[in-house]
């Protein structure tokens, strides 16, 4: 259970450029929920994920994970529960390190010691996991990650974000920077990896693609100017179309100019 209560975040606080990124944001997410988050640029989607992961510190409010207050822990302490995939495929892996070294770094997220980072058992385990990706990476396990393509690196990041069995998976437009083919593959992989955890994982996926937002996952949250303006799930969600969603956005977002960003309706 992930509970977000009255979360507020300003950027450049107490300066002339002060911006409100998130305002009294509330969200309760049950175990096993797969939430897609949509909203225009500046709606606070990425800020929300960064606050959950601890990259940013909130100004007000709290975040609880399985009853434990995590909102005051530094980012590196939260990493043992949280897997992340970024939009930029280059951010999630270390290019000058090998595939197996990257995987080893992501597997053990606390109490690292002076044991060897890679041993025979781990190597076999990594090979097995990589073969599930169907990219042939298992045969190149000591290749530098910088030599892989964007799609391959993103697939590796997906694996690294789920392999250690996190409680929460944060996906920040993780298919947006890829070509259509890789994008499809990564989305399929995401769904498989989530299904594999059999309702034991909380997933938050930010996307700009409304169609994707309704097709993937089992609940959709719409954000606008740092607020949660529309939250839909179950039967109601199955019935709704992309057009309805766009209309909802204009009404609830209180947009008089009927402003819809082009990218949001890309299907």
């Amino acid at each position: 259970m992930l509970i977000i209560k009255k979360l507020t975040k300003y950027f450049a606080k107490n300066s002339p450029h002060e911006t409100l990124a998130l305002e009294n944001f509330n969200l309760r997410i049950g175990k096993g929920d797969f939430i897609t988050i949509i909203g225009s640029n500046g709606a606070g989607k990425s800020t929300l994920l960064n606050l959950i992961a601890g990259t940013f510190q909130q100004d007000k409010g709290e975040i609880r994970l399985s009853g434990e207050m995590i909102s005051n822990l530094p980012e590196y302490r939260r990493a043992r529960w949280i897997g992340r995939v970024f939009q930029n495929p280059l951010l999630g892996t270390a290019p000058y390190m090998t595939i197996e070294e990257n995987l080893s770094l992501s597997l053990k997220r606390e109490k690292r010691g002076l044991r060897l980072g890679i041993n025979k058992n781990l190597r076999n385990f990594f090979r097995e996991k990589l073969s599930e990706l169907n990219l042939g990476l298992e045969d190149n396990i000591s290749k530098k990650v910088g030599l892989l393509s964007g799609g391959q690196r993103q697939a590796m990041t997906m694996l690294m974000a789920t392999m250690f069995k996190p409680k929460v998976l944060l996906l920040d437009e993780h298919t947006a920077a890829l070509d259509p083919e890789s994008s499809k593959k990564i989305l399929k992989l995401t769904q498989n990896l989530v299904i594999e955890r059999q309702g034991d994982l909380i997933t938050l996926m930010v996307t700009h693609n409304m169609k994707q937002a309704l097709e993937v996952g089992d609940r959709t949250v719409m954000m606008d100017r740092g607020r949660n303006i529309f939250d839909i799930q179950g039967e109601e969600r199955k019935k709704i179309s992309v057009d309805d969603l766009v209309k909802q956005f204009s009404i609830l977002g209180n947009r008089k100019d009927n402003y819809i960003e082009d990218r949001m309706v890309l299907i």
Binding site: E75, Y96, M160
Partner: peptide, 22 residues
């Protein structure tokens, strides 16, 4: 070693290794 790899990763991709609990 486990710690050694995190030191290499710090020089290689600091943002990533922070998000991996270092």
């Amino acid at each position: 070693t486990e710690i050694g790899l995190t030191i290499i990763a710090t020089g290689d991709n600091e943002q990533m290794i922070k998000s991996l609990g270092v």
